[in-house]
Nucleic acid binder design. Structure first.
Lengths: 180, 180, 180, 180
DNA sequence: GATGAATGAGAATTCATTCAT
DNA sequence: TATGAATGAATTCTCATTCAT
């Protein structure tokens, strides 16, 4: 794999684990085994690297979402949708992405930096959700899906950052019940 | 007001606005008009200051929550509870606290630092919520209130950090509908 | 002497010897025996240090110029004036200041940075010169003194940066002859 | 034109505008549209490039000076000589060369690097000047021409780097008057 | 001739923290 | 309590230069 890609991947991991600010370029270099110079050869600065990281994550999320099979029953489709989300949340590889996501959205500095990319991603998720709710015949699907997305965010947040064990499965069951 | 308290207050504001990492001790000193020496006279180090900040916020939250009047009707009580939460969210003074809260919880370094205090606060909120659901006769009030808290978190997150305008009132209405 | 002043003095020497760009903060620190941190404690950044250096030099020049005795004969006064300038040029302590001066004025980046201070100093010198020429009864003393100052600059430049030996005394004699 | 020549030309422009130190090889590459590798293929290092730049400028100056027509009257010849110098100073294309010249002569590092080339050029100018003064019958033409060259330098310096408008024409008139 | 990935040395700057006063 | 000089470690970033292709 390309050194440039290796750097991005290492950055994804470290940014997620330690946060953007607490991750030094040196740490990334050590992980990949390249010089600091190379990072600045490929990326204008640290902020630029973060943007590229964010773009790559969005791509991963986008591509992973496309394998939903064609389910015709509206209710079954919603259930499948919710389940795919909860599954993604608990896959180790994806956990990291979620963590990074929150990290970056909540931090004022990084948030500003990525505002356009965040907006793009939010839209992406809202559209996918709205479609499902439309298919179920909701009249106020716009509001409902905005709430739905928010709630999923909250559950992910509590799951990923909970102090004690988080009963994801029970929550999922309850969540599905509420929406069907 | 005590210089010590002034420092804590300034820190709350700056930590919320810029994040813990991006806020330098110097910036706090400038805002309050004291020397760096004084900050380290009152607080062992920057981490210690953050803990004091977090403790003060928990106190504010705790005290603000106690003025709920005794409502006897279960459903009305839940509605009042939800409404008090949504109201708190939108009061400017409290917004800052929420922001700081997310900031600190999502950042691995600060999260570790405050783990015990976070746990205490989470418990506090969960108990208050569980009581309301118990009163409504929920059998699985433990799970439901955990989900409820998570969802509130998500809504707060989306409200506070949304790119576009967030329709808090419509979401509130929909949210109440779902739980009653 | 104050550490701050020591830093400025060391900077004057090194900036003159090596040029502003080629002088690292580390080099200054080594010369004075302080940490890099201290330099940035006293000066906002390297540019700021340069400004303080320039201000100090202007002060030195200003104070050194005031000891001209009251000579009544116009011609004698001009000669004394020219001689004081040529003397200053050749005193080792002052040589450094001249060198730094040229260095900083010719370099686009530093020039821009110091524009206001340079202007102030140029005015200072022009006024002193114009007074002397006025006293001699020149009608176009404005132009003549501007030319005079320019010529002095040129002579200093050639003297300070000449490849071979520069016959300062002969030039002085010739220069005086031309103006009297 | 040769890529090598294009690089030199771009370097002349950038070195003059920003100074040698502040001009990165990358900047030159961008301007010409070539890779960094190519620059180091043609020039041993950045210092070598500067030498080539200086050599090219000396050539330009040398060639431009040769078109002086044969004037027999000594005084007229001096006036023509002075006028050709003042004219050169104000032609935009030449201004850049003068600027670069000062830049490089005053900066200790570059000065050392180019010492032999500078000496050659200084000699060139001094000889041309001395010839004119000899033709006018000056006995001490060596000293006079050294002073003359210095003064011209000073006037150029003040003209090129003056804060306010510099009255080049009036100065020229006055300058000619003084020497005739 | 020509490219561009890769390096390594060094630069400015930031910042928590200590300590003498 | 209160100040502010002083430190040292870490961090981002720049840049000339090399080298395989």
């Amino acid at each position: 794999m390309d050194k440039r890609d290796q750097i991005i991947d290492a950055a994804i991991g470290l940014f997620a684990e330690q946060g953007f600010d607490k991750t030094s370029i040196s740490a990334i270099c050590e992980k990949v085994g390249v010089s600091k110079g190379l990072v600045f050869h490929h990326f204008k600065n640290k902020d630029d690297l973060l943007r590229e990281v964010f773009i790559k994550i969005t791509d991963i999320v986008r591509n992973s979402g496309e394998r939903s099979p064609a389910i015709t029953d509206p209710k079954a489709r919603l259930v499948a949708y919710i389940e795919s989300i909860f599954t993604a949340m608990s896959v180790p590889d994806y956990k990291v992405l979620y963590q990074l996501n929150f990290n970056v959205m909540v931090q004022p500095a990084t948030r500003t930096l990525l505002l356009d990319l965040i907006e793009e991603r939010v839209l992406l998720m809202r559209q996918a959700t709205e479609e499902v709710f439309n298919y179920m015949g909701y009249k106020n699907s716009a509001i409902v899906s905005q709430m739905f997305v928010a709630e999923i965010d909250g559950i992910a947040l509590n799951y990923l950052f909970s102090v004690e064990e988080f009963p994801l499965d029970e929550i999922k069951t309850e969540f599905i019940k509420k929406y069907t």
